[in-house]
């Protein structure tokens, strides 16, 4: 892992004993971390140890350790796929588009809720805006079909009435990506706003009072107090999403895509599903999972540095 300048804020610890005696002062902290760390070791790291089956010809009777190594055979089907490049391209583009639209939309909604003077409006919007998060994609498929279907969708009735003709929105590679990105935006916007709303609560109200005294307008307050106040959370949310950049939303694509839009709808996870899960071959999922982690890690390292340079804060 890269080094950062924050480290320099620790007092000089040239010798081991001095370092240790410095660390000893934090024993209360370490004590507090023991349970969570133990939990991580067992529940998160043991499975990672077992993930060695990605490089093995796993046999249940031989167990994880006893199964023979087979190098990169489990990765072969993925890296030899003629669709590899489009799969990665689709995955990354959907991820980025959802990030670029979803995070600002959620922030905007949180800001709106924070700034509005109407108590009723705030309550109602707040209570209803998260509900779409609970619609499963299967149900949304029905709703989207009601809007966009070629034979009986609302928009096509309008199109036909106005002489534009029928557009098969869900089955046309030109329109399908928009449906994916905007349905996700609609579904997750309210839910995504909650975390920013919580962060807004951490802003010291005294700051606004002094700003008013100095005659700052509401917009200026947003610009110079509110947004900087939640900048760190925004950075955290964005960075964590960048770390999982190769997760583009399996459930959504799996439900919404269809054969004619595979060119723009097939992502890494849907491919893995068809190749591995449907085939009861789970080592390929583990193998691709490791690959995705590696990509996520490298992106995270780069963007964490960038964030520190530009926004002054990163994940750590």
């Amino acid at each position: 892992m890269g080094r950062s300048r924050i480290e320099s804020s620790t007092p000089p610890g040239r010798t081991l004993t001095r370092r240790l005696s410095h660390a000893w002062k934090f024993r209360g902290m370490y004590g507090m971390a023991i349970l969570p760390v133990a939990f991580f070791l067992v529940i998160r790291y043991l499975p990672l140890w077992n993930a060695q089956i990605a490089f093995k010809d796993f046999s249940p009777l031989d167990g994880v350790w006893g199964s023979p190594w087979n190098g990169f055979s489990n990765f072969a089907a993925f890296f030899r796929s003629p669709y590899l490049v489009p799969l990665i391209r689709n995955t990354v583009l959907y991820s980025l588009a959802k990030l670029a639209l979803g995070v600002p939309a959620a922030i905007l909604l949180a800001l709106g809720l924070y700034e509005t003077g109407h108590r009723m409006l705030r309550r109602v919007v707040q209570t209803l805006a998260y509900l779409p998060h609970f619609l499963s994609w299967i149900i949304l498929h029905g709703i989207l079909l009601g809007l966009f279907s070629a034979s009986e969708g609302l928009f096509n009735e309008i199109n036909r009435a106005s002489g534009i003709g029928t557009i098969n929105y869900m089955g046309d590679p030109a329109t399908f990506p928009f449906i994916v990105v905007f349905s996700d935006l609609w579904k997750e916007m309210g839910w995504g706003a909650i975390v920013f709303l919580a962060a807004l609560m951490g802003i010291d109200p005294a700051l606004f009072e002094s700003a008013q005294v100095e005659g700052a307008s509401r917009l200026q307050q947003v610009r110079y107090i509110t947004l900087p106040g939640i900048l760190d959370v925004i950075v955290v949310v964005v960075l964590l999403r960048i770390g999982t950049i190769l997760d583009a939303g399996f459930h959504q694509l799996f439900v919404l895509y269809s054969v004619p839009v595979l060119d723009v709808g097939d992502i890494i996870d849907t491919w893995v599903y068809r190749q591995g899960i449907l085939n009861a071959d789970y080592s390929i999922a583990t193998a691709v999972g490791l690959f995705k982690g590696l990509i996520g890690l490298s992106f995270l390292l780069v963007f964490n540095r960038l964030a520190k340079r530009i926004a002054g804060s990163g994940l750590y």
């Binding site: 760390v37 077992n50 089956i53 583990t286 999972g289």
Partner: peptide, 19 residues
């Protein structure tokens, strides 16, 4: 780093099930 590694690497179904 210790916390982030398992967040980034998803070991998949079987490895977790065994644990």
């Amino acid at each position: 780093t210790f916390i982030l590694i398992p967040f980034l690497f998803n070991p998949g179904l079987i490895p977790s099930y065994l644990v």
